[in-house]
Write a protein that binds this DNA or RNA. Sequence first.
DNA 1: TAGCTGACGCCCT
DNA 2: CAGGGCGCCAGCT
Length: 112
Amino acid sequence: MSQDNFFEKVYRIARAIPYGRVTSYGAIAGAVGSPGAARMVGWAMNKAYEQEEYVPAHRVVNSKGLLTGKMHFPGENTMQELLENEGVVVVNDQIQNFNEVFWEPDVEFFSD
DNA sequence: TAGCTGACGCCCT
DNA sequence: CAGGGCGCCAGCT
């Protein structure tokens, strides 16, 4: 499968994030073969709601485990509530035990 | 048409 | 140890 679209790759990985797990923009960017393009990943997430397939954008945070994109969700704490609903502990927009819930995308798996 | 911005990340000072 | 600056790619004005 050669999803030439940068977004397609991002969405594919985002949808592959296991329940109760999270990943970072940079990790996804690196998985799609464009390390450093973490900003683009965030942009893709912004457009994620337009996708027909559900994209768990709330499971994507920055490298520090901070809910930097919570402001883009409908409610004020929608993103945090979604994560907590999956068992992810979030305090003050900061994911606790981030190291444990962090999920690294398999680059080779999504490469093609 | 060209330039700016953007849910980030890492290197340099 | 902390702060600032530049790079990433694509969409939007």
